[in-house]
């Protein structure tokens, strides 16, 4: 399989930090636009929705890392933690804008939404489930948890499924955009189901040809 030109070793660490910085640019840019009138006449809602979309994008990107290596031979595992954490940061900002700017920190209204509106319940559940994953996204936890780390981080499948459901249920009607995200997420999750078989098959083939 053709390989991408490898990044020089001394740039590998900095490239991860660059990803964090680049990943936060959309949030900073939209905040600037919202504050200066660039997001239209309902800037809070637009800002809130854009942050949610970017959260989905980063979480999807994090889940793309494995199939990318399996199927295309591109190893970007060093970026997976940053993508997942960026997804978490965007989920936090998305919730923050909703609670702080949209509902003006009316905690009664926030709580009423969470218990009464299924799509918000689901979104909130995803945020809560992301917290243990974010807290264990460090080398110390990986060492400490051993194989349990992998089991714990399988929660990401549930979270992305919940995230896409939250997105679709929040819309008034089905359009191309949610359909694209839904297809992507479905493909990523189905891939996880068939992955063990696929890897078995690949291993068997390798044995046969050696």
């Amino acid at each position: 399989m053709p390989a991408l030109p490898a990044l020089p070793k001394r740039l590998q660490g900095p490239s991860v930090w660059a990803l964090y910085v680049i990943g936060l640019i959309p949030a900073a840019w939209y905040f600037y636009q919202a504050a200066t009138g660039g997001l239209g006449f309902n800037p809070v809602k637009t800002f809130e929705h854009l942050l949610g979309i970017w959260a989905l994008r980063f979480l999807i990107a994090a889940l793309l890392i494995t199939p990318l290596r399996d199927l295309a031979g591109i190893n970007w595992f060093r970026y997976r933690r940053a993508l997942g954490l960026l997804g978490f940061y965007y989920v936090l900002m998305h919730f923050g804008v909703y609670a702080l700017l949209d509902l003006r920190l009316n905690l009664g209204a926030v709580w009423a939404d969470i218990v009464r509106r299924p799509y918000i319940t689901i979104g909130m559940l995803c945020l809560v489930l992301l917290i243990p994953l974010a807290l264990t996204s460090n080398n110390w936890s990986i060492k400490r948890l051993g194989s349990r780390w992998g089991s714990l981080h399988k929660l990401s499948y549930l979270i992305i499924a919940g995230g896409i459901l939250h997105f679709i249920l929040a819309r008034k009607s089905m359009t191309l955009e949610p359909v694209i995200y839904l297809s992507l997420v479905t493909a990523l999750l189905v891939y996880r189901l068939i992955r063990p078989k696929l890897l078995d098959w690949k291993r068997a083939r390798r044995v046969r040809f050696n």
Partner: peptide, 23 residues
């Protein structure tokens, strides 16, 4: 009477309040 997905108790006036709109 709430919409099933959100409360109808308050509203936001479009074009007012910028990033800190009052409901």
């Amino acid at each position: 009477v709430d919409h099933p997905r959100w409360s109808q108790a308050t509203e936001q006036r479009i074009g007012e309040g910028g990033l800190f709109p009052e409901r």
